[in-house]
């Protein structure tokens, strides 16, 4: 048994947990448990990043998705009325199934038809410095544009949330 086999075992365990918990997100009636399953899916995706030797991305996945996004989701659950009574039924089931199936079909076609390039290089040890270098040297303009966009979204959210009177 070498690193490759161990990585494969880890990959399959985490992939199965990720897919099962992602399914559980849509079939669970209790919306709070659905949010918890979504957090589990996020964390297993972080595990998948570790099997790819992408340690920085894995930590950021836990920090951003496991920490921030999950808190956002849970706040949304809290502020939803009558959430204890479960997920109310509505007429969106059929369009949602249709759109979901369409999206899944698109993904499957794209994944099976594209030619995936395999790199023969061994994974880099210590990705943090390379990522930082790429963000503020090579790709500084897209990075700054994304930052300004996020800042604008944040200010917009604050303006909307404040209302007119204050």
């Amino acid at each position: 048994m070498n690193v490759g086999v161990a990585a494969s075992i880890a990959f399959w365990i985490m992939a199965i947990i990720a897919v099962v918990s992602a399914l559980a997100v849509i079939v669970t009636r209790d919306i709070f448990r659905a949010a918890l399953f979504l957090i589990l899916a996020f964390l297993t995706v972080a595990g998948l990043f570790i099997t790819l030797s992408a340690d920085f991305v894995a930590a950021v996945q836990v920090l951003v998705y496991g920490g921030a996004i999950s808190i956002l989701l849970i706040f949304a659950v809290l502020l939803t009325r009558d959430v204890q009574k479960g997920n109310p039924s509505n007429r969106m089931l059929k369009p949602a199934v249709f759109l979901g199936a369409l999206f899944a079909a698109t993904l499957i076609v794209v994944i099976t038809n594209s030619t995936w390039k395999l790199s023969g290089d061994s994974p880099p040890q210590g990705t943090t410095a390379a990522i930082g270098d790429a963000l503020v040297n090579s790709y500084v303009l897209p990075f700054e544009i994304a930052s300004v966009l996020l800042l604008a979204a944040m200010i917009g959210a604050i303006v909307v949330a404040r209302g007119r009177d204050e």
Partner: peptide
């Protein structure tokens, strides 16, 4: 290599 980032990430995950 990501030492301190790891610490911040896992302690944030405890909020759940």
């Amino acid at each position: 290599d990501i030492g301190i980032l790891w610490v911040i990430a896992v302690t944030t995950a405890a909020e759940a």
